[in-house]
Simulated scan of single mutants.
Amino acid sequence: MKINLSKLSKKHIAISIGILVISTATITAITVGDLQSKIKITYLGQSAFMIEADGKRIYIDPYNLPEIYANKPADGVIITHSHYDHFSRTALNLISNNLTEHVGPDSMATYKNFFNVSAINPFENTTIAGFNLEAIPMYNLGNSPMHAKTQGWCGYIIEIHEIRIFHAGDSDNIPEYEDLKGKIDVACLPIGNRRQTMGFSEASEAIGVIEPEYVIPMHYWEIKPKSFKEYCAKDHPETTFKIMKEGNVFYI
């Protein structure tokens, strides 16, 4: 894990310590493991992620999943809103069982009719698979009808081992992000525009507001996320951009 010297005061940083054991014959390096378990984040394409920690597996907006994921059942599933590329009954049936916890916006009646769902509204808190979950508003600014604020759809903050992972859903850079400043470790942000989400400019501005340590671009359609990293490099030199293809893994 990269250690940012400017953030050593953060409690969540996992440090591997090398201890030198000196004998008359050799000097041996002994590695002491991370002070806390690592969190595994797998990008599943579009806006979908799989987060694994402490033997638990949580999916966010699973969509278009290969059959192999039937062997990776969900302890928890989080849905941001009802659009087909975020709420896929096919994907949910593949990974869900009787023990799977589901969390989704209270306004998603369809979700609640088909699955055992704990309904949530923006600014509410709950738990999923034993981890804290906070709902953040998810909507488009202006007059776009794609993701209206009145829908009550949600982005989410998942807290695992004092590490906070934020998934913005299909949101724009909304005023509520001001409350997240300095509180987010990993931000999964949409960059695809198409009048549905942030584009490069808005997403870069959101990074400046939230100040996450890591950014994972998502929901980029035909746009190359590497171009977004290059676009942001000058304005956000202290941010680490994780450019992930489908199936790529990031440990923190």
Rank of each mutant, 00 (worst) to 15 (best):
N93G: 06
G76Y: 11
E101S: 12
I60L: 09
Y63C: 09
I79M: 05
D75G: 00
A91M: 04
E67C: 02
L92I: 13
K72D: 09
T90M: 11
L92K: 08
A91C: 08
I58T: 00
V103L: 07
A70P: 08
Y69D: 04
Y69I: 03
V77H: 08
I58C: 03
R57E: 06
A91H: 04
R57C: 13
S96L: 03
A74Y: 00
E101Q: 14
I68C: 10
L94G: 11
N71R: 10
H83L: 10
S82Q: 13
H83F: 12
P66Q: 07
N71C: 06
K72R: 14
Y84N: 12
D85E: 13
P73F: 01
H102D: 08
K56E: 06
S82R: 14
H86C: 13
R57T: 14
E101P: 10
L99Q: 13
T100P: 08
Y63M: 04
N98E: 14
L92Y: 05
I58V: 09
Y63V: 04
Y84W: 12
A91I: 04
S88T: 07
G104I: 10
H102C: 10
T100N: 11
E101M: 13
I68A: 15
A70G: 15
L65H: 03
N97K: 04
T100H: 06
K72C: 15
H86K: 14
I79C: 03
S96H: 14
S82I: 15
N93K: 05
D106S: 15
S96Y: 08
Y69N: 05
D75R: 00
I78T: 04
H83I: 14
D61Q: 01
D85I: 13
L65V: 06
I95N: 07
I58G: 00
R89Y: 02
P62M: 03
I95R: 01
R57N: 09
L65G: 02
Y59D: 02
L99T: 11
R89Q: 14
N64V: 11
S107R: 09
L65A: 03
K56N: 07
H83M: 12
I95V: 13
A70I: 15
I60A: 03
L94K: 14
G104T: 13
